[in-house]
Design a protein around this nucleic acid. Structure first.
Length: 372
RNA sequence: GUGGUUGUAGCUCAGGUGGUUAGAGCAUCAGAUUGUGGUUCUGAGGGCCGUGGGUUCGAGUCCCAUCAUCCACC
C-alpha cells in the first residue's frame, strides 16, 4: 500500500492524496460506504460502482463471522469474489460491536466474550481471532481489534481500556506479520487511537499508535455521543501527532458538516452509516440542506431531489414511494445520499487542489446544516 | 311511501347496565439516528360525539323530533 500526498490547503490542515491498493486507487479525502454484512444496504454493486462511484466500502468482522461465517467466505475466495466487488474493502474488527452490544459482553485481557445478537450463542474474540477472520474475509485494509469506550467514560476506565487496546494492537501486528494473506494480494493493518475525550490520553495513544509504523492510522472512540466541538478538539490533537505521510481515518464520522470540518483538521478517510440508515428513514442530504422526503410539503414538488447529484427523480415521486412503503424509495434515497457524500468529498478534493478549501468549506457547512 | 341500519378525529372504527380531562390504528406534523441488531424509534396537533329538544345532579350512552346514509319491500 502506498499513500501519496498531492496537495495541501494553505488555509487549513486539509490535504489531497491517493491511496494505492491491490484492488485499485483511492483518491483522498474519501468517504467509504458501510456494507456491514457484505452488502451496502439497498444498493446493488453495479449502482455502487457506476452511479455512486464508491472507491472503497466497509465490511464488518463481527457480522460476517456470524453470517455467513469464515468457511463460506474462504470457499468463496474472499469477500470481494463472494459479493462481486472488485474495488477495495476495509473491514472493521468488531471492536465497535463489543461497545454497542455492551450488555452482552465480558472483556478480559485475552479478549472479549460476547453473545450473538442472532441466536444468543456464546463466542470469544481475541486479537488473533479478529485477524484470522479478517484474513478470511480478505479485506485490503484490516482494522486492529480495539475497545471503543462509551461516552461519558471515567478517566481511569478510559486509561485502562486504552492500554488494553495498545496491548491488543501488539498482538494484532505480531499475528499479521506471522501469516501470509490467503488470496494473493496485500492486506494492511490500521491501528486505532483511543483515549476517550481526555487530551493527555489521546496524546499518549496517538504517539503509541504512530510508533508502530503501520500503513495508515485510525482515530476511534469518537462520535459516540460527545458534543461535536469535543470531537473536533480530539481529532485536531490526534492529527497533529499522527504522521503526515500516512492516511488518517476517522471512524464512524459523520454528518456532511462533520466530514468537511474534519477534512480541514487533516483527516483523509471517513465512514458512517448515516447516509444509508437515514436514507432508509426518508432523510436526504443535499447541497442546499437536509430534506425529510416524507413531509407533505413535497407532495406536488416535481423538481429533482438534487439537480446535480440525483437529476432522475422528483421529490414528489420519491415521497410517493416512501408514503406507499415501496422498497424502491429507500433504494433511491440510499443511492442519492451516498452519491451526495461521494460528490461532497470529491468537491473537497478539488478545492484542496485549488488551494481555496477553507473558504469553500465554511460556506458549504452553512448550507449543509439548514433544513429545507 | 313503509320497515329497518348506521351517524364519534382527515379516514376506518372502539367506547357493558348514564358518572373525572371521549380512545385506537392509519393519515398529518415535528424530532431522533455518527467504526448499521433499524421498511425503525420518540413526541405533537387534531373532536359542538349529525342537528334540535327532553329526562336527569350528570347524556357519546336513555326518550322524542329532524336531517343524512345504506338495505329491503311496495
Amino acid at each position: 500500500m502506498k499513500f501519496t500526498l498531492s496537495a495541501k490547503d494553505p488555509g487549513s490542515k486539509a490535504r489531497a492524496g491517493v491511496l494505492q491498493t491491490d484492488h485499485g486507487d483511492i483518491p483522498t479525502p474519501i468517504f467509504m460506504p458501510v456494507g456491514t454484512a457484505g452488502t451496502v444496504k439497498a444498493v446493488r454493486q453495479r449502482e455502487l460502482e457506476k452511479e455512486v462511484d464508491a472507491r472503497i466500502i466497509l465490511g464488518n468482522t463481527y457480522h460476517l463471522y456470524l453470517r455467513p461465517g469464515q468457511e463460506v467466505l474462504k470457499q468463496a475466495g474472499g469477500l470481494h469474489r463472494f459479493m462481486n466487488w472488485t474495488r477495495p474493502i476495509l473491514t472493521d474488527s468488531g471492536g465497535y460491536q463489543v461497545f454497542s452490544l455492551s450488555e452482552k459482553r465480558k472483556i478480559q485481557e485475552d479478549g472479549v466474550e460476547f453473545r450473538s445478537h442472532i441466536d444468543g450463542s456464546k463466542h470469544f474474540f481475541t486479537p488473533e481471532k479478529a485477524m484470522d477472520i479478517q484474513r478470511h474475509i480478505g479485506a485490503d485494509i484490516v482494522m486492529a481489534f480495539d475497545e471503543c469506550t462509551p461516552y461519558p467514560c471515567e478517566k481511569s476506565y478510559a486509561r485502562n481500556s486504552m492500554h488494553l487496546t495498545h496491548r491488543w494492537l501488539d498482538r494484532c501486528i505480531r499475528d499479521m506479520g506471522s501469516h501470509d494473506s490467503l488470496y494473493g494480494y496485500r492486506q494492511n493493518l490500521f491501528p486505532i487511537v483511543q483515549g476517550s475525550v481526555y487530551p493527555d490520553l489521546r496524546k499518549e495513544s496517538a504517539e503509541y499508535i504512530a510508533s508502530t509504523e503501520q500503513a495508515g492510522n485510525a482515530i476511534g472512540g469518537l462520535s459516540v455521543g460527545e458534543p461535536a466541538e469535543m470531537m473536533y478538539e480530539m481529532t485536531e490533537l490526534v492529527c497533529g501527532i499522527l504522521p503526515e505521510e500516512k492516511p488518517r481515518y476517522l471512524m464512524g464520522v459523520g454528518t456532511p458538516a462533520n466530514i468537511l470540518e474534519c477534512i480541514a483538521l487533516g483527516v483523509d478517510m471517513f465512514d458512517c452509516v448515516m447516509p444509508t440508515r437515514n436514507a432508509r428513514n426518508g432523510m436526504l442530504f443535499t447541497e442546499e440542506g437536509i430534506i425529510n422526503i416524507k413531509n407533505k410539503k413535497w407532495e406536488f414538488d416535481f423538481d429533482p431531489i438534487d439537480e446535480r447529484v440525483s437529476p432522475d427523480f422528483s421529490k414528489a415521486y420519491l415521497r410517493h414511494l416512501f408514503i406507499s412503503g415501496e422498497m424502491l424509495g429507500p433504494q433511491i434515497a440510499s443511492i442519492h445520499n451516498l452519491s451526495f457524500y461521494l460528490w461532497l468529498v470529491g468537491e473537497a478534493r478539488k478545492h484542496i487542489e485549488a488551494g481555496d478549501f477553507a473558504a469553500w468549506k465554511n460556506g458549504m457547512v452553512q448550507k449543509l446544516t439548514t433544513r429545507r
